[in-house]
Design a protein around this nucleic acid. Structure first.
Length: 134
DNA sequence: GCCAACGTTGGC
DNA sequence: GCCAACGTTGGC
């Protein structure tokens, strides 16, 4: 099982909306690095849900329910999307400042613009702990 | 609201 | 195929 981090601006798609909806397609990715990560995702993989701009913190955990397929919002057909379902909200949001302090090597701390990022097993465990999850 | 970092575009 | 110009993202 692999771990990921997906970002969303709460103005566009927030964790609250995600939880209410249950499962939804993660569309709108227009970056080839991010696309490569989406293609690598397998059903059952877990991902942290991160709010950019507003909050700048990890607010929940999602799970891949449908692997990469052509993004219906992309007319060119070049990009893909993945479907996620909300699994659990965090007890304590993990802010970008905390990530930078505790996990300075994370992609999030180094390349904050990438919208889909891989997370290592060690990083996953550490962030879960910081977030108050088992 | 500003600006740095990054990706993409387009002229040559 | 290089690189300058431009647009976008996202932290501050």
């Amino acid at each position: 099982m692999a771990y990921w981090l997906i970002k969303s601006e709460p103005d566009t798609w927030s964790w609250d909306q995600h939880m209410k909806k249950g499962a939804d397609a993660w569309t709108g990715v227009r970056n080839h690095q991010a696309k490569a990560h989406l293609n690598a995702m397998k059903k059952g993989d877990k991902a942290f849900f991160y709010h950019s701009n507003e909050g700048k913190e990890i607010v929940g955990v999602s799970e891949v329910v449908k692997e990469a397929y052509p993004d219906p919002t992309d007319k060119t057909g070049a990009f893909v999307c993945v479907e996620f379902k909300a699994v659990e909200p965090v007890k304590t949001p993990v802010t970008l400042a905390t990530v930078k302090a505790e996990l300075p090597d994370m992609v999030l701390a180094k390349n904050s613009r990438l919208s889909v990022q891989p997370v290592t097993a060690d990083e996953w465990k550490k962030i879960r702990k910081l977030a108050g999850l088992k």
